[in-house]
């Protein structure tokens, strides 16, 4: 029996290894669609998707929008500023009003952890989490895994160090859960003030020094220092952070092997990552962006399914 996804994609924590594998495998053929002259397939023709973004986003919103359009869905973008949200409408009221206009899916980014799940339980449409507070950013985790699998040919047994601001990072959480389920080893590395308490309970190793992470890992996922979430005096200064935790050419030169460098963007060049590294031969930062569209197409395609009782027929791919 093939694995299927449920109604919503809230996080990678709830998915099985088979479901993760299904999404990554489904993303493969979607890469080719974006290479065509006519970058469009009719798979989601007639579906209406609302991109509901309560937080700023460029990459993720555009990536979802490309994915939706390349699948022939009709899309509407709603940002919190300039909508009724700024008049104090609640999340559920906003979504119910959208649903009353007969939509099929909602892609939501929200500052509150758990917003996607909250919404998914209250509306009939499929809900896809595009980042909720400090909880998860599942499609980012998936595109990171797809990029690692492209580069290494496998995920099982890979050593991935996630570096930087783990505390505020939904990207870190999605990566940790996803990678562990697919058999990778995961370490986190960052200043103690930016590591969640008891982070090792998630099943990861804590490496206190960036030099240790560089010695240990096959790939570094360098997180963005979330300056907008940093009013609490987590760091003495950005220069200090770069001096102690920055991923620099000099530090990488001392690694026993060439490390693959990931970054979810947007980068603070010269803070968590040096420009030479970001633009260097081992950086897969732009392939990550390309894979993002394919992964999101796969998720949209898989979630937009119809009646489960007909699944067997579909899975067999019987002659017709």
């Amino acid at each position: 029996m093939t694995a299927a996804l449920g109604k919503d994609l809230v996080g990678l924590e709830e998915l099985s290894a088979e479901q993760l594998q299904l999404i990554l495998d489904t993303a493969e053929p979607f890469k080719e669609v974006s290479e065509r002259q006519i970058k469009k397939v009719p798979a989601l023709r007639g579906k209406t998707i609302v991109n509901l973004f309560f937080e700023a986003s460029t990459r993720t919103r555009i990536s979802f929008e490309f994915a939706e359009k390349r699948l022939s869905a009709d899309t509407v973008n709603v940002a919190s500023s300039g909508s009724s949200v700024s008049k104090g409408e609640t999340l559920v009221d906003t979504a119910r009003n959208l649903e009353a206009m007969r939509i099929d899916m909602v892609v939501i980014r929200h500052g509150a952890s758990g917003a996607a799940q909250f919404l998914g339980r209250r509306i009939r449409s499929n809900v896809i989490n595009a980042g909720d507070g400090k909880h998860e950013h599942p499609t980012q985790g998936l595109l990171d895994m797809l990029t690692l699998r492209d580069k290494f040919g496998r995920i099982r047994g890979l050593k991935v160090a996630i570096c930087g601001d783990i505390l505020h990072s939904r990207v870190a959480r999605s990566n940790i859960w996803g990678l562990l389920k697919l058999g990778a080893e995961v370490a986190v590395c960052g200043p103690a003030s930016l590591l969640p308490r008891n982070v090792s309970e998630l099943g990861v190793t804590v490496l206190p020094r960036i030099e240790d992470a560089i010695q240990w890992a096959d790939a570094l996922n360098v997180l963005r220092l979330q300056l907008e979430r940093m009013q609490g005096g987590f760091l003495p200064s950005l220069r200090e952070y770069n001096r102690v935790f920055g991923v620099t050419t000099e530090r990488l030169a001392r690694a026993p092997k060439d490390l693959v460098i990931l970054h979810p963007g947007p980068m603070n060049r010269g803070v968590e990552i040096d420009s030479d590294v970001a633009d260097g031969p081992h950086s897969v930062i732009l392939p990550q962006v390309t894979n993002g569209v394919a992964v999101r197409m796969a998720v949209l395609y898989l979630l937009a399914g119809g009646k489960p009782d007909l699944a067997v027929r579909a899975g067999r791919g019987e002659e017709r």
Partner: peptide
């Protein structure tokens, strides 16, 4: 697969193969 006329009704998605 992505051009099938029954995608809206067949439920969980058939595996998509390679196009070259």
């Amino acid at each position: 697969t992505l051009y099938r006329d029954d995608l809206q009704t067949i439920g969980p998605r058939p595996v998509v193969g390679e196009t070259r």
